[in-house]
Computed example of a mutant assay.
Amino acid sequence: MRSEIHPYAKIMAIADVFDALTSNRAYRGAMLPHEAIEIFFTGSDSHFEPEIIKVFQKS
């Protein structure tokens, strides 16, 4: 099923989740960027493309 998702949508999903995790919310404070990246790697096989995460981490 993941193969049916457009590559641009996969990139946007990572950017959106990173923004959500590193922003203050009413129910929690913002995470540090390295903490958000750890979450990506934790879910890299089931939720996010590992190759895209690696490129995102380098930028």
Score class of each variant (00 low, 15 high):
residue 2 R to I: 06
residue 3 S to W: 06
residue 3 S to E: 12
residue 3 S to G: 01
residue 4 E to F: 11
residue 4 E to Q: 13
residue 5 I to Q: 10
residue 6 H to E: 14
residue 7 P to W: 00
residue 10 K to T: 00
residue 10 K to L: 07
residue 11 I to Q: 04
residue 11 I to F: 04
residue 11 I to R: 05
residue 11 I to D: 00
residue 13 A to P: 01
residue 14 I to N: 02
residue 14 I to P: 03
residue 15 A to V: 06
residue 16 D to R: 13
residue 17 V to D: 04
residue 18 F to L: 03
residue 19 D to H: 14
residue 19 D to C: 13
residue 19 D to M: 14
residue 20 A to N: 14
residue 20 A to F: 15
residue 23 S to N: 12
residue 23 S to Y: 07
residue 25 R to H: 15
residue 26 A to W: 03
residue 26 A to I: 05
residue 26 A to H: 02
residue 26 A to Q: 00
residue 27 Y to C: 06
residue 27 Y to N: 10
residue 27 Y to W: 13
residue 30 A to V: 09
residue 30 A to M: 09
residue 33 P to W: 06
residue 35 E to V: 09
residue 35 E to M: 15
residue 35 E to A: 14
residue 36 A to M: 10
residue 36 A to C: 09
residue 37 I to R: 06
residue 37 I to N: 05
residue 37 I to W: 02
residue 39 I to C: 05
residue 39 I to W: 02
residue 39 I to V: 13
residue 40 F to I: 07
residue 40 F to V: 06
residue 41 F to N: 09
residue 41 F to R: 15
residue 41 F to L: 07
residue 41 F to I: 06
residue 42 T to G: 04
residue 42 T to S: 08
residue 42 T to R: 09
residue 43 G to D: 12
residue 44 S to Y: 04
residue 44 S to L: 07
residue 44 S to C: 14
residue 44 S to E: 14
residue 44 S to G: 02
residue 44 S to T: 11
residue 45 D to T: 08
residue 45 D to L: 11
residue 45 D to V: 04
residue 46 S to Q: 11
residue 46 S to C: 08
residue 47 H to W: 10
residue 48 F to C: 03
residue 49 E to P: 02
residue 51 E to D: 13
residue 51 E to A: 15
residue 51 E to N: 11
residue 51 E to S: 13
residue 51 E to I: 07
residue 51 E to L: 10
residue 52 I to Q: 05
residue 52 I to E: 06
residue 52 I to R: 05
residue 53 I to R: 03
residue 54 K to I: 10
residue 54 K to G: 04
residue 55 V to H: 05
residue 55 V to D: 09
residue 56 F to H: 02
residue 57 Q to K: 12
residue 57 Q to D: 10
residue 57 Q to E: 14
residue 58 K to Q: 15
